[in-house]
Design a protein around this nucleic acid. Structure first.
Length: 424
RNA sequence: GGAGCGAUGGCCGAGCGGCUGAAGGCGGCGGCUUGCUAAGCCGUUGUACCUGGAGACGGGUACCGCGGGUUCGAAUCCCGCUCGCUCCGCCA
């Protein structure tokens, strides 16, 4: 959600954002409703003022004067009731439209219509050259006994899987590596609720637009979060923080659930696109300052790169173009890790700046030294997500005999082991 | 799941139809005091929106968990919901 004052004063910026992000929103209608809402509010407040002054005079009056005042107040009350009913629908429409106003992309964000317009900023590492025919992660994982698809498919449906044996340990290892890495950077570990109310989904910007992406527990009116970002940001919902608390840096760890509603039939094989995964997520709540926010953004990006470097996985950083940005995102960097079987860099991390988009929805503010309450800025980035990250690990670290060498950084979390051998 | 109790400002806590944006205390801030001194005294102290003003600041409206109702008038009465606590039951 954006500041309505900003929207009123900068309709052109919003219009451009709507166009470049390809958002479906009638801005003129919003401005119209805003105008109607304001003038009706003024009318209502004038009526209330009248009623209040009558009410306070009534106890002091006697006889006819008192009766007249009561009658007049009744009349005012009726007019008020009519106006209040009228404003209800206006207010509802206004609130709904406000939920669809996009954040304005940062100046450096390229205008684009698809992934092809993202700008590659840098690459790290060299894609491994194999002197044998490499297997893909699916073949490797199956032959090493790291995963079971056949069973889960029957009782859990498509895109389901069970990690087994060393697959479980490998997943725990990457999660621990990432979590410890960001904890060392001063982030506070949090394992937040993943079953949340609609208010948290709306507050973080996932609802109403991406309602179809989440699993709903209808019976209890709860939703499964697709990222711990929801739980972490919502931790401070409706709060006025003190300035000294900022920036707040969290390392969330949680199961993540995604319906992949718009991706039917895409990436159905293997561990790339699944409904349920584990993720260590970085979330920052900082001052309402674009510069400070940018610094935090770069810090988040750096953390993720360092984790991939610790794993010695080749990757690249791309600046997402306008249409690739989510509704609230101001800027986003994709971190893409080289996946040998796909012969391409594929997204494993996503680093976003949202300015006050989430904080306004979630009512997260802080009090400045001068006593003003400002909405915080929020940011987030993946630290690691599994099992997707297992794809480049298995494929990159595979050996000719079908075994997989465990990356050095993970060995301390794998009982010091160096290799995963095929089952006999 | 059953029974009961509760939700008031940053915190504690009074109010239980008009005099209450809300007593009192704590905390915070400003000032005074400097022989009650890790203290005393005085003042001040919420949030949002509308509106006037360059600003300082002023006017108005709303908010006593949330939403509705009764009433000329609701923190106070009624209904629904949410959350918390206690007891019973069930249970990782």
């Amino acid at each position: 959600m954006l500041d309505i004052n900003f929207i009123r004063e900068n309709p052109d910026k919003i219009r451009t954002a709507i166009k470049n992000k390809q958002v479906n929103l009638d801005l003129d209608r919003l401005l119209e409703v805003d105008q109607a809402r304001r003038s009706l509010t003024q009318e209502i407040e004038a009526l209330r003022q009248k009623r209040n002054s009558l009410s306070s005079s009534i106890p002091k009056l006697k006889g006819d004067e008192r009766e007249n005042a009561i009658q007049e107040s009744k009349t005012v009350g009726q007019a008020l009731k009519a106006d209040e009913e009228k404003i209800q629908s206006i207010e509802a429409e206004f609130k709904n439209l406000m939920l669809f106003v996009p954040g304005v992309p940062a100046p450096e964000v390229p205008v684009g219509t698809g992934e092809k317009d993202n700008i590659e900023l840098r690459k790290w590492g060299e894609a491994r050259k194999f002197d044998f025919t490499p297997k893909d992660h699916l073949e490797l994982a199956l032959s090493l006994g790291l995963v079971n698809f056949d069973g889960p498919r029957q009782y859990a449906g498509s895109r389901s899987y069970a990690l087994t044996g060393d697959g479980v340990l490998l997943e725990l290892a990457v999660l621990q590596l990432a979590l410890n890495h960001v904890i060392r950077k001063g982030f506070t570990a949090v394992s937040p609720p993943i079953l949340v109310k609609e208010t948290a989904m709306q507050g973080t910007g996932f609802f109403p637009l991406h309602f179809e992406e989440s699993y709903a527990i209808e019976k209890d009116e709860l939703f499964l979060t697709g990222t711990s970002e929801v739980g972490l940001v919502s931790l401070h919902m409706d709060q006025i923080l003190s300035e000294e608390e900022l920036p707040i840096r969290y390392a969330g760890i949680s199961d993540c659930f995604r319906r992949e509603a718009g991706a039917a039939g895409r990436d159905t094989k293997g561990l790339y696109r699944v409904h349920h995964f584990q993720k260590v997520e970085q979330v920052v709540i900082c001052h309402a300052d674009p510069e400070a926010s940018l610094k935090e953004h770069m810090l988040l990006l750096q953390n993720s790169e360092e984790i991939l470097q610790a794993l010695e996985l080749p990757h690249r950083i791309a600046l997402a173009c306008s249409v690739e940005l989510g509704l609230g995102q101001i800027r986003k960097h994709e971190v893409e890790t080289w996946m040998p079987s796909r012969q391409t860099y594929s997204e494993t991390h996503s680093c976003s700046t949202l300015h006050d988009f989430q904080a306004r929805r979630s009512k997260i503010r802080y009090k400045t030294e001068s006593g003003k309450n400002l909405h915080c800025y929020t940011l987030n980035n993946t630290a690691i997500a599994s099992p997707r990250i297992l794809i480049p690990i298995l494929e990159t670290y595979q050996n000719k005999d079908g075994s997989v060498t465990i990356p050095k950084a993970l060995r301390q979390y794998m009982n010091g082991r160096e290799i995963i051998e095929p089952k006999k």
